[in-house]
Design a protein around this nucleic acid. Structure first.
Lengths: 123, 123, 123, 123
DNA sequence: GTGGTCTAGACCACA
DNA sequence: GTGGTCTAGACCACA
């Protein structure tokens, strides 16, 4: 068993930014908020954001230009790949959890379909 | 933003036990491990398990008999209700996340179906 | 504050026997159960019952005859006095508690009357 | 027989606090003492008070605000209901005890009335 | 400062 | 052996 699964904050923020990129809120070439601004928005230490941007750059999802700021990669293929990968992880995880609850694969599809095809999306 | 969503350990363990009940690993009337044994298994303090069992009892998923132990409820209807509720939460959460990635409802169904209908379940 | 108000068991048993005497279950001159029998009935050590009978004798509510056993006093006046005293204590205590809850004296009378005059005694 | 009916300390303290709420010493919205302060006042471990406040919250008699403290519910109806319930329990219990002493219902009313209508409240 | 969780360890009643 | 309570004391997030 693994308790205390507590992801480091910089990784949590990376995830948020990846979400924004993948969903198109941030597009290829867009400027990311400055380290200081994002630190304020998330109420964390600027170092945390700094680390976050560094790691995103290492994954080639953003690039920095000295004196100008940090920008979303213009490699749209990379973004698409990321989107696929993130979707895959979510899906994998979801299916695994549902199986743990004792649902068979076909049941899972049915539950999802039913949930999505309801006329009014509650919430 | 919400970082550090660290669920208390006793709740995480409640979740594990609910999974076992809902999936049928633990059936109505079955004895749960003793507080001390489960504490060893999960490497936590017995008080933490105690708290966990108490909360599960409060939710009418288990009942205790002084001097004998803690047992899974025999109210099968309650177990079924729990299973439905847990499935609903997982599904809700999954859909929400996928939407954040920018997927449309019908795409989500397709992704799940494709994933499930692949001939060989990888891993 | 006083927690752990835990009366000694011999006193609790004295109380039970006084109840039996005062209510007429045990009458003046009746033989009390033997120390051994009562110890069994209450699942306590015979010494505890011994102590209990001793104290009751000191209060002149019972008397012992060597070789014969322990008997309820034949002083009916003493029994009546005991009954009055016990009733007084209960009543005093009850009123005090009700006042702590914020009820005025006249309200207390009303509540008791209403409760007693209900057609069917529930329970 | 039931000896040693020793209520857990946290329940005894719950009872004290309920008394304070019901009698109006603590009113809707009032802040309760902090866990640590009450622990000192009652000379018990803070965990015991913690448990107490938690149970009171579960009964919707208090609510907590993270970082601020614990407060009496503002649902005055709930307080009134509690008062009625506590009075009922006391009364029920009192009548039962008096019956055990051998008093008839009408006698009980008379004893209470006499006790209350005495000109000077002794003690 | 405030409540919430957790550990380590003791002692209890019940069976 | 089983759960239930309690102490002593630590550390945490939130304000």
């Amino acid at each position: 068993m693994e308790f205390d699964s507590h992801l480091p904050i910089y990784m949590q923020i990376m995830h948020v930014i990846k979400n924004r990129i993948v969903s198109g809120q941030l597009r290829g070439g867009d400027k990311l908020p400055s380290v200081r601004d994002l630190a304020k928005e998330f109420k964390v230490n600027p170092n945390t954001i700094q680390r976050c941007y560094q790691e995103l750059e290492r994954e080639n999802l953003v690039f920095t230009q000295r004196g100008l700021g940090t920008f979303v990669t213009e490699d749209l293929e990379a973004i698409k790949t990321l989107k696929t990968k993130m979707a895959h992880e979510l899906t994998q995880n979801f299916i695994e959890q549902m199986k743990k609850l004792g649902f068979a694969p076909q049941e899972i599809i049915k539950i999802i379909s039913d949930r999505i095809n309801r006329r009014h999306d509650d919430e």
